[in-house]
Amino acid sequence: MNIVVCVKRVPDLAEAEIVVDRSEKGIETEDLVFDINEWDNYAVEEAVLLKESIGGTVTAISLGEEDSEEVLRRGLAVGADNAILLNDRAFDGGDAFATAKALAAAIERNPFDLILTGAQAADDGYAQVGATLAEMLGIPHATLVTGLEIDGNVARVHRELEAGLEEILDVRLPAVLTIQTGINEPRYVSIAGIRRVARREIEVLGAKDLGLSGDEVGAAGSRLEMQRLFVPPATQKGEILEGSVDVTTEKLVSIFASKGWLA
């Protein structure tokens, strides 16, 4: 089974302060810490688990700049066999459609049975690349996958719906599955593990290598045109209680008390 897994390098967001840059289309990255997109982390683990249980190869692929090699190396350290970086100025500013276009062209060069992507990326949050990729490759897809079993050329898939509901489907391979968090427990990737793959080659491809022209990819090949990125005001609705911990908690308690919740 040849498995391809798409990964992306994104900033860690939980406590990051997002500052829009002068172009108003991107953000200041200097103070941010980058890592593999969380959903992709689960996807890589799932790919390697599958390889470990039924055999085959895993190819990790990422579209991004040179620093994206970092997440690819991480993939290799987890157990991927090959890594491909799609790096070209021409890819800059692409939306999900343009990104999927480049990925599809790269993936198509070799035989594959299964493609895994994260359900969405933490930065632009499109939740779109996987299913778009499937359509471009003319194969079925399932998104938000929280459970996966392979039986011959059929994937039995659990898809997450709302309110704790899941649907269970059979999808014929080859297919694209977009992986939702919680599907597995990603293993730890040690520095020693990364060092072990430090000298493994990462194939770097540009638009030309993929037979794509500059206006099929990047901002030019996008269906969406980014107009402006902005940070909305922090509070819109309520009141931030000011003061020391003592003061703020006291205020809150009197609010609760006035509602009669502390009776």
Partner: peptide, 11 residues
């Protein structure tokens, strides 16, 4: 650690 799989999630 080098293998990564048996590391408890919190760690």
């Amino acid at each position: 650690m080098a293998e990564g799989r048996k590391v408890p999630p919190t760690i």
